[in-house]
Amino acid sequence: MSEIVLKTIVGTIVLALFGIIFGLLYKGIDRKLSAHMQARVGPPIRQPFRDVMKLFTKENVIPRHAIPWIFNLAPLAGLVATISILLYIPIGGFEPILSGSGDLILILYLLIVPSLAMVVGGFASGSPYATVGAQREMVTMIAYEFPLAIIIVSIAWKLNQLGNVDVFALSTITANPVWNTASGPLGIIGFAILLIVLVIVTPGELSKIPFDAPEAETEIAGGLLVEYSGRNLAMFYLTDGVKTVIMASLIVVLFFPYNLSNILGITGVYTTYALDLIFYLLKVFLVILFSVTLIRVGVARLKIDQIVYTYWIPLTLLSLVGLVFIMWDGFVTVP
């Protein structure tokens, strides 16, 4: 019992530092790459670290119409909840620290908390721009939950069909990669469709273009973060970085949980750890490249009712088609 408590405490500290440092690092890489895609030079990779440092030296203004205790508490609560998700995901190919105490549904709900904290913070700012941005964020959340729920339940359902127990637990999902569970071409196509839908859901979760109507700088002057400054804004900035790492890790864990050491057959404790960690970081980088950077520089921003339409009609139907393919997987086989 006390072993779990000790593991939890140490794990939290280590993973919090890991999440923040790598979150900011990936943010920097993302800005550099998108700048090169737009034929600019872009900031150096350690720019986000400098941004956070600078935000900490700015004044922390609380507007007149805000509710102070909620205004100050929301960014902190968002960051804390986001860090707690890290303990349930297999980072770097290792077992999650709290692997027997939380599953995929918990992660799904905890992913709501950072956006919810931004929404509550926006509402608590007392400014009309912030209110409009906050309700847009809430509507975006409603929109992307539908395809996300379909993806998660489909994967769990398929694993359950094959007789596994505890199918929502991440340790079971990483032990049975989804491409191996598909017994025919329909299954593979179904899972590929779900992967594409998840890649399009990710910018919605992270409030990046084309789904960043809540933070539209050009329309509503910064949206729900308009009244935030100083250390509160730094908390939100860090939350965004950590959440990027988490979403990318989720895609890696659900669809590409392969460990390099298993493939290459390498043994030896520290070599496997180091190799797995590096391979994992590489996979996360590739996912961020495709789902955040490429999409961000390629398309324009959607209107809020277009966002709801996009997620609820085409993407939901697409993921339902994927679910149907997975359900019919056993009936069509390659001759």
């Binding site: 027997g100 918990l106 929502f168």
Partner: peptide, 8 residues
Amino acid sequence: SGFWNPIL
């Protein structure tokens, strides 16, 4: 199919 431990 899953578990949840609030105390941890």
